[in-house]
């Protein structure tokens, strides 16, 4: 009977075996920054008891409706959503979800602007929100262009002149339905989705900004959390 030598030396610990492993490093960095209690918190500061703090999650809820209805529309196609009752309804759900998405996002933007939401090392959170807003405008614009009706024809031929006037008409041809459709259903949703996820992760990392006139006591439970340690100067 033979015995097999262990692959690692007896004095080698699992940590040293994983040293230099990039997946382990990434895991430690992510879960060090986002422990489960911070990623999905059970309780929030008392200053969140205001309707003005609801509009961020309302914007995300509208975005979920947009994505789901958009997936259905992309699978079924214009011949379905222009002719059948269910298709027209789904098309309308997509359209009106976009309208609500922008209403919620604008109110969210106003609320965050007037409470100077970039305080407390939250500049990147604010900037990702700004970029998400601009990307949303572009996504909605290309959405109007790919309605495949007279409305989209009118909008594209009006926009064509504007884009030509600023010199990008040859690169971004809004009358090219194939190009615009791919931008609308592939490129921009992907980029916008990444930015929105990053925005949410930054909110989780730094915590939701308190109102300007609120003094937040530093809790003993989590002294490293900026959201609960910020004290107004």
């Amino acid at each position: 009977m033979t015995t097999t030598e262990p692959q690692t030396a007896p004095d080698e610990t699992p940590d040293s075996a994983e040293a230099g492993n990039w997946t382990v490093g990434l895991r430690n960095k992510f879960f060090g920054t986002y422990p489960p209690e911070k990623l999905l918190p059970g309780r929030q500061p008392a200053y969140l008891s205001s309707w003005i703090y609801v509009f961020g999650v309302l914007t995300i809820a509208a975005l979920v409706f947009i994505i789901i209805s958009g997936l259905v529309l992309s699978f079924e196609g214009p011949s379905w959503y222009h002719t059948s009752s269910v298709g027209l309804f789904t098309n309308s759900v997509h359209f009106w979800s976009v309208q609500l998405f922008f209403v919620f996002m604008v109110v969210h933007l106003w609320g965050k602007f007037w409470m100077a939401a970039w305080r407390g090392h939250r500049a990147l959170t604010w900037m990702t929100g700004v970029v998400a807003f601009l990307m949303s405008i572009g996504t909605a614009f290309t959405g109007y262009l790919v309605q495949t009706n007279f409305d989209s024809q009118w909008i594209s031929f009006e926009a064509k002149d504007g884009l030509n006037a600023v010199g990008i008409g040859a690169w971004f041809n809004v009358t090219n339905l194939g190009q615009t459709l791919l931008i609308h259903v592939c490129l921009l949703p992907l980029v916008l989705g990444v930015i929105v996820v990053g925005h949410i992760l930054l909110v989780r990392k730094h915590g939701i900004v308190p109102p300007i006139d609120v003094e937040v006591p530093a809790p003993a439970a989590d002294p490293t959390d900026p959201a609960t340690t910020e004290v107004k100067s």
Partner: peptide
């Protein structure tokens, strides 16, 4: 028949 103004909800029962 003209441009779709996104009013399909109203139009479902009216087309």
């Amino acid at each position: 028949a003209g441009p779709d103004k996104g009013l399909g909800i109203a139009r479902v029962g009216l087309a």
